[in-house]
Simulated assay, not measured.
Amino acid sequence: MLERQKQDVVEMAQKAAAWGLCKHKAGNSSVRDSETGYVLVTPTTVDKNLLTPRDIVVMDLQANVIEAQSGLRPTSECLMHLEIYKTRPDIFAVSHTHSIYATAFAVLARPIPAVVYECAILNLQEGVIPVAPYGRPGTPDLSNSVIEPIKRADAILMERHGAIAVDKSPYEAVLKAAYIEEMAEIYYHALLINGGRDPGGFAAAELQQWAYPSQIKFKSPA
């Protein structure tokens, strides 16, 4: 069932691990199938480097397990993934990571401003990577905590927990998770260089103005 989508989830999880966004058994990944509406999610407590498509668990949006070929349970944070898909019907992939710099700001419940223009890809409607309030992992409190911030951005922090990135594409969701970590690291160093004073960031309106240069012209084939 949904073998291509299972492979997408495996590749998301392994890419996050390879890029240093998650270590050991941390973090989780999912995709939503556009036809069935089913969500395919990583299992709990499995080393991402050992994952196979058989290990990926298929669920519906009501948290019913449809298929678990390896007999594994879905990640304990699957309710969070399901809530994100219900809140954002426009997205089809979720990458949850525990990257170091992003998580450090999450511990402080400190939003990350759009310090460089690359933040434009993160759909930051308020010009910052917002923070979801603390919720104990594996509880409805956690899944409910992400509802409001994920409406305002494709990249959010989770207080004292980690980060979440969403996109239509599995690859782009992980890439956005990597951008969160890069923005967090840049922000950290900017604060350090600036004696702890906040460097500020781009306004949301400025981030939304980006467009490919109209001056670039392509010749028609002869």
Score class of each variant (00 low, 15 high):
residue 12 M to I: 12
residue 219 K to H: 08
residue 108 L to P: 01
residue 121 I to C: 12
residue 72 L to Y: 12
residue 17 A to M: 12
residue 185 E to P: 02
residue 97 T to I: 08
residue 147 I to H: 00
residue 151 K to Q: 15
residue 76 S to K: 08
residue 22 C to K: 00
residue 154 D to E: 05
residue 166 V to R: 00
residue 106 A to S: 14
residue 193 I to A: 14
residue 214 S to A: 15
residue 113 P to H: 09
residue 219 K to V: 05
residue 190 A to C: 11
residue 61 L to K: 07
residue 168 K to V: 13
residue 71 G to R: 04
residue 19 W to E: 12
residue 155 A to K: 00
residue 50 L to V: 03
residue 115 V to Y: 14
residue 68 A to D: 13
residue 190 A to H: 02
residue 104 A to G: 07
residue 172 E to G: 01
residue 172 E to H: 12
residue 183 M to V: 15
residue 38 Y to E: 10
residue 208 Q to R: 13
residue 70 S to F: 13
residue 95 S to E: 05
residue 81 H to R: 00
residue 13 A to E: 07
residue 15 K to Q: 08
residue 186 I to Q: 01
residue 193 I to C: 02
residue 139 T to G: 01
residue 211 A to M: 09
residue 214 S to Q: 13
residue 102 A to C: 04
residue 212 Y to V: 04
residue 118 E to V: 05
residue 132 A to Y: 13
residue 101 Y to E: 04
residue 142 L to N: 00
residue 163 A to S: 15
residue 222 A to N: 09
residue 214 S to G: 02
residue 137 P to H: 07
residue 58 V to F: 09
residue 111 P to V: 10
residue 14 Q to D: 05
residue 77 E to S: 03
residue 182 E to A: 08
residue 75 T to D: 04
residue 194 N to R: 11
residue 104 A to M: 10
residue 138 G to L: 09
residue 122 L to Q: 01
residue 135 G to Q: 01
residue 59 M to K: 04
residue 217 K to F: 14
residue 151 K to G: 01
residue 216 I to H: 10
residue 96 H to F: 14
residue 167 D to M: 06
residue 213 P to Y: 14
residue 24 H to T: 08
residue 63 A to Q: 15
residue 216 I to F: 15
residue 26 A to T: 05
residue 110 R to H: 12
residue 173 A to K: 04
residue 28 N to Y: 14
residue 97 T to S: 04
residue 34 S to H: 11
residue 58 V to M: 13
residue 23 K to N: 06
residue 118 E to T: 04
residue 175 L to D: 03
residue 33 D to S: 02
residue 114 A to K: 03
residue 137 P to A: 03
residue 88 R to E: 15
residue 143 S to C: 10
residue 160 R to P: 00
residue 176 K to I: 10
residue 34 S to G: 06
residue 217 K to M: 05
residue 163 A to P: 03
residue 2 L to M: 11
residue 215 Q to C: 03
residue 68 A to F: 11
residue 20 G to V: 07
residue 195 G to D: 12
residue 194 N to H: 14
residue 72 L to K: 15
residue 163 A to E: 14
residue 104 A to N: 06
residue 217 K to Y: 11
residue 198 D to I: 06
